[in-house]
């Protein structure tokens, strides 16, 4: 790995980037509240949705004491299998999280109702 490039002091980084990241944390909190408030069919299953499980795993990376957080947060959402899938027929987009996380999650995990519509070029 090359020597890291550093042009700013830590205080400058906080000064420049704190507010936008404060806002992001509150957006995540509000999103989780929104899911919690939702009622009707599927409300309970939503709590065990593979995307929320991955999100919580990624948030855990933010709170642990380790470095390299962006790359490790990416891994929390990533497909960690190694073999090609048999067919991509009817599949274009990505969900943003790997359904396979259900195989490693504790308790019940819901993966059947995802609409993966992120399919830009």
């Amino acid at each position: 790995m090359p020597a890291q490039i550093i042009h700013m002091q830590a205080a400058e980084v906080i000064e420049r980037y704190f507010l936008e990241n404060r806002a992001r944390v509150i957006e995540i909190a509000a999103f989780l509240d929104r899911v919690g408030r939702a009622s009707g069919a599927g409300a309970e299953a939503a709590e065990s949705d593979f995307r929320l499980i991955s999100l919580r795993n990624a948030v855990g990376v933010l709170l642990d004491g380790g470095g390299n957080k962006a790359a490790r947060a990416q891994l929390a959402f990533s497909d960690l299998s190694t073999e090609p899938i048999e067919s991509a027929a009817g599949m274009k987009g990505a969900c943003g999280a790997w359904k396979g996380v259900c195989a490693t999650a504790t308790g019940v995990c819901s993966a059947s109702n995802a609409s993966c519509d992120n399919a830009e070029g």
């Binding site: 959402f77 497909d79 299998s81 190694t82 992120n118």
Partner: peptide, 11 residues
């Protein structure tokens, strides 16, 4: 690939 498929696809 996009998002969750990127790491596996890149390799």
């Amino acid at each position: 690939p996009h998002l969750e498929d990127k790491l596996k696809g890149t390799r």
